[in-house]
Simulated scan of single mutants.
Amino acid sequence: MQEQLTMNRPKGHHLTLKERGNIEVYFNHDEYSRRKIAELIGVSPQTINNEIKRGLVTNKQLVNGKEKFYEIYVAELAEQRYHEKRKVCHRPCKFYPVLDFLAFFVGHFKTDCWAPDVAVGRAQALSL
């Protein structure tokens, strides 16, 4: 049995909004390092680094007439960016480029009782 296994969650699971909220609390109060946050949440340190990079916001504040920049992690912003990237990460549908061929194939297969090989051969001859 491995004694140094620090993950208490299955591999490959995505962070929830509650876990992102915990990261926000831990990170913004400067009490914990990124490795300590990873240990508390039960994920790898690289997951925390990626997540903080996803939700990091740079704020500006005037202190004694000078601009001071500081960074905070915003869980809601990280969740929003996660969902935006998740929408476009899937493989594109392969049916759209071949809709003409499918209509040709189904039409002749059903109405003319063509064999599949015949329909494919005729489609190639017509270059559909």
Rank of each mutant, 00 (worst) to 15 (best):
N8H: 14
F109T: 01
Q4T: 04
G21Q: 10
C89I: 13
A78S: 13
E71S: 09
S127M: 06
I41L: 10
F109I: 03
K94H: 03
S33G: 15
K18F: 05
I48T: 01
I37R: 01
A115T: 03
K18L: 14
M1P: 05
A38L: 00
T16W: 08
L62W: 09
L126C: 09
G65P: 01
G65M: 02
T58Y: 05
G65K: 01
E67I: 13
L99Q: 15
K66Y: 05
L102D: 01
R122A: 02
I72F: 05
E84T: 11
R35Y: 07
F27M: 10
F105N: 00
R81W: 04
L102Y: 13
F95A: 02
A115R: 00
A38C: 04
I37D: 08
Y73W: 12
V118E: 02
I41K: 06
Y82G: 03
Q4R: 07
G65V: 01
Q46M: 14
E79I: 06
L77I: 12
L62P: 07
Q46A: 13
Q80G: 04
L62I: 13
T47Q: 11
L40E: 13
F105I: 00
P45F: 05
T16S: 14
A75V: 07
C89N: 09
F105Q: 02
F101C: 07
I41G: 08
K87C: 01
E31D: 10
N28V: 07
T16K: 10
T58V: 09
C93H: 11
N8W: 11
I37N: 06
V106H: 08
L5S: 14
Y32E: 06
C113K: 15
A125W: 08
I52Q: 03
I52G: 06
N50M: 02
H108K: 08
